[in-house]
Computed example of a mutant assay.
Amino acid sequence: MDDEEARTRLLDAAEALFYAEGIQAVGMDRIRTESGVPLKRLYKLFPAKEALVTAYLERRDRRWTASLRGAVAGCADPVEAVFDWLAQWFSEPDFRGCAFLNAYGELGTGPAGVLDVVRRHKAELRELLAELAGPGREDLADQLLILVEGATAVAALTPGPEPAHRAREAASALLLAREGGRAIA
């Protein structure tokens, strides 16, 4: 097994375990066992748990953001597409809320690398929502971010599509009130 394969196996194991059970509940030995990567190689690639957590979140950010961007690309109503995408995500059997907020909730302002990834992820999400809201509508992007984050937090407690549907209704009312345009169906 080369370093690339070992890194992938470690990140796969870390993502599955950290997301399902929490970062602090999962030790490096468990990651080693689940990944099948020898301990020496694990610490060569990730000298500390913080490095592994940071890499896990960075990879998850790339995949999560690319999936959301793909879902809204070319849609006639990209704001509607955001909430449709959230409804699908919230309905996944292993959904446990936002990995980034979960990490922040567990670790707080502790590891700087982890906190940087969490902040970057939220900034990227806000940037995407600003693109969808259109130029000069920063306040709308902030409001949509609150709806997305709120729906995600509620769905973590009550999984399923309903929080996304309710947030979509709120977004529709918000857009109607701002523009007098059509509601999101």
Rank of each mutant, 00 (worst) to 15 (best):
A185D: 15
P78F: 13
E169Y: 01
D29H: 06
A103I: 14
V53E: 09
D29P: 07
L157R: 14
L144P: 04
T33S: 02
G110R: 10
G74E: 07
R182Q: 13
V72P: 02
P47G: 12
R9E: 05
V72Q: 03
E15Y: 03
P159D: 13
E80T: 12
P163E: 02
P47F: 02
D142W: 00
R9A: 07
L125S: 00
V117N: 04
A71V: 13
H121A: 04
Y104I: 14
R126L: 00
P47S: 12
A48E: 12
F83D: 12
N102H: 13
F90L: 12
D84F: 11
L45C: 00
P78G: 01
L115I: 09
A164E: 13
L145K: 08
D29V: 04
E131L: 04
A112H: 10
D94H: 09
L175Y: 10
W85F: 09
D77E: 14
T54W: 01
A173Q: 08
P78K: 08
L147V: 10
F83W: 10
R60K: 11
F95A: 03
E106F: 06
R120G: 02
T65W: 12
S67P: 10
K44Y: 06
A6V: 15
R59Y: 09
A156E: 11
A167Q: 11
R96W: 15
